[in-house]
Amino acid sequence: MNNKVRNNKAWWLILPMLLLVAFSAIIPLMTVVNYSVQDVFDAQTRYFTGTEWFVQMLNDPTLQSALGRQFAFSLTILAIEVPLGIGIALLMPKKGWQASAILILVTLPLLIPWNVVGSIWQIFTRGDIGLMGWSLRELGYSYNITRSPLDAWITIVIMDVWHWTPLIALLCYSGLRAIPEAYYQAARIDRASRWAIFRYIQLPKLTNVLVIGILLRFMHSFMIYAEPFVLTGGGPGSSTTFLSQALAIMATAQFDVGPSAAFSLIYFLIILLVSWVFYTAIMNMQKDKKDGGA
């Protein structure tokens, strides 16, 4: 083993990639790290603060409650969008012109920009001219997203479900199409029930696309900004002020760059941690148990 010729020149080949990543991610991130450990007064005056901002941010009740809302929101939309997306994918026709037509219809919401989605729903929910707002009022429900936190919450959840369930549905649809016909034939020969086919063939074959879908939806929803900002402005009160909006207020309106930088890093680490734990847990499920077999 030791008589191999060692040549490490190939490391140079990763240099272009390293430069690219440096400019696209590492350097911008390091400036944030830089701010997070200093108190900046003006271009000349700055003090090193160490972990002070981090401690302060973690104890900030406004941010704590925004974080709580954020988790509640992400979990709620995942709990709705994932089963709904799988269900839609299972119902979508497999071939013919119907398949193309449905595919286009399902994809449409994905093509709408975030703040436009917010505007659409803002008009949609208005009590005087909005179809949904007006209809609900006519039906006798005093629907008002600027007054009732519950109405605002439910509306934002429905909006996100409407906007992003298609992503899960599309991913699952492609995953389902990739299952060879022989699996379904074998299942019929094995006398499997419809549920067993879903549980033991379709769902396992969807694992990989679902991991991608859930991670994307988690990251996306955890960073949600434009839609609630346009629809409710974070209100009523702060009932729909999610994390990125709270952060934006601090960083741009109050210009507290040090604390916001510290909080940005915490924010980033939370997303990274949750994604990593989720991914590792799913991948571990597919391995053999330690005690079994070879």
């Binding site: 060879p180 022989a182 699996y183 034939q185 074998a186 020969i189 033991y200 063939i201 769902l203 396992p204 074959k205 499920m285 597919q286």
Partner: peptide, 12 residues
């Protein structure tokens, strides 16, 4: 019972 050309197994 039928055995197919390519193995069909239940992954999980």
């Amino acid at each position: 019972a039928q055995v197919f050309q390519f193995p069909v197994i239940y992954d999980t």
